[in-house]
C-alpha cells in the first residue's frame, strides 16, 4: 500500500497523472487512494518531494477475522 506523508505533500497531482490505474484522486488538498492501486510504486518515483512511500505488505500475515 501507499503511505502519504502529509507534511511533505504539495498537492500538485504529479502522482495522479503518473498512476496507471487511476487509483489516486486529488480533491483540492485531499489526496484519496482507491482500491484499484496495484502497489506498482510509480507514484512514489513521480512525487517530486518524496511524500509517498510504498509499504510492503506481501508476506505479512493478515490476522484472520473471527466472528
Amino acid at each position: 500500500m501507499i503511505e502519504l506523508n502529509d507534511d511533505k505533500c504539495m498537492h500538485c497531482g504529479a502522482c495522479v497523472g503518473a498512476c496507471p490505474a487511476n487509483a489516486i484522486y486529488l480533491n483540492e488538498v485531499i489526496l484519496d487512494f482507491n482500491d484499484d492501486c496495484t502497489d506498482c510504486g510509480l507514484c512514489v518515483r513521480a512525487c517530486p518531494v518524496g511524500a509517498l512511500s510504498l509499504i510492503r505488505t506481501r508476506g505479512l500475515k493478515v490476522p484472520a477475522v473471527t466472528a
Binding site: A18, V44, R45, C47, P48, V49, S53
Partner: peptide
C-alpha cells in the same frame, strides 16, 4: 520518470 530510481529525486 524512467530515469528516476527512488523517491524525492527532483528535490
Amino acid at each position: 520518470l524512467s530515469k528516476i530510481k527512488g523517491p524525492s529525486e527532483a528535490k
